[in-house]
Design a protein around this nucleic acid. Sequence first.
DNA 1: CCAGACGTTGTT
DNA 2: GTCTGG
DNA 3: CCAGACGTTGTT
DNA 4: GTCTGG
Length: 228
Amino acid sequence: MCGRFTIGEIKELITRFSIDAPIADMPRPRYNLAPTQDAPIVVRSSPNRLVMMRWGLVPFWAKDIKIGSRMINARAESVAQRPAFRVSLKERRCLVPTTGFYEWKAGDGKVPYLAKVKDEKLFAMAGLYDRWKDPSGKEVQSFTIITTAANQLMSTIHDRMPVILSREDEERWLAPGPLDEAERERMFRPYPSERMEAYPVSKRVNDISNDSAELVRPLERAQGAQWF
DNA sequence: CCAGACGTTGTT
DNA sequence: GTCTGG
DNA sequence: CCAGACGTTGTT
DNA sequence: GTCTGG
C-alpha cells in the first residue's frame, strides 16, 4: 500500500509535470507526508495545474471530513466498483508526484523502507480526487492513491504498492473522460521491479522530519537492514 | 420501503 | 449520490 | 501509514 | 483492542 511518501525536488516539479498555470504558493518539500496532510497534486487543466490537496479522499456526498482518513488508498482491482471512487475514476484522475514512498516491513518491529524509481528523481503515482464542501460551505479538495499488487522487489517488504505510471501513461491518465477496462488494467500493472530500489531509512518513521532531507538516506549496512 | 454504509491493511 | 441489507 | 489516546465533571 | 489525529 502507500501510507506515507516524500515530495522533494520542488523546483523540478513544474517542468517535470508541465505545469502551466502560475504557482502562487510553491509547495515546500515534505519528507514524511502523512494522511490528512496537504500534498501538491497534478490535475489536467489545459494543460496541467498544481493544486494542494488533502490526502484521504472525501467523497462529494460525505457528511463528515473524517471519512477521508479511511480513503487514503483505492484498490486497483475494485476501484471501478466502489461508490466512494467510481465517479472520480471516470472524471477526476490526478497524478501524485513523489520522490519516494514508504512501505513497512513486518518482522522484528516494523521498519520503514523508502522505495524509489531508479534514475528518476520525480515520478507519478496514480491518484483520484474529489471536491467536498464543509458545513460552512468551504471547499476541500482531497485525493487517494491507487494500489496494486507488489512487484518482485516490493513483495519482499509488503504485498501491495502504489500504481506508478510510466511517463507515457501520465498524460493518458490525466486526459478527461473515462478509460476503458483494458486501458485501466494495463496502467494498473505493478511497475517493473528492475526499475525500482528500496532501502530502510530509519527505525521509526516519525523520527524522519517532514522538513529535512537529512534522514532520507539509507541506514548503514551494519545495522543489519536489508538492501536492494 | 428505509437505514446505513460508502475503505484498505494487517492481524488474529 | 448510490448501493446493500433488512 | 504510525503514534498516541483511550473520561467526565466542575471549577478556575 | 480500537479509534483519532497527523
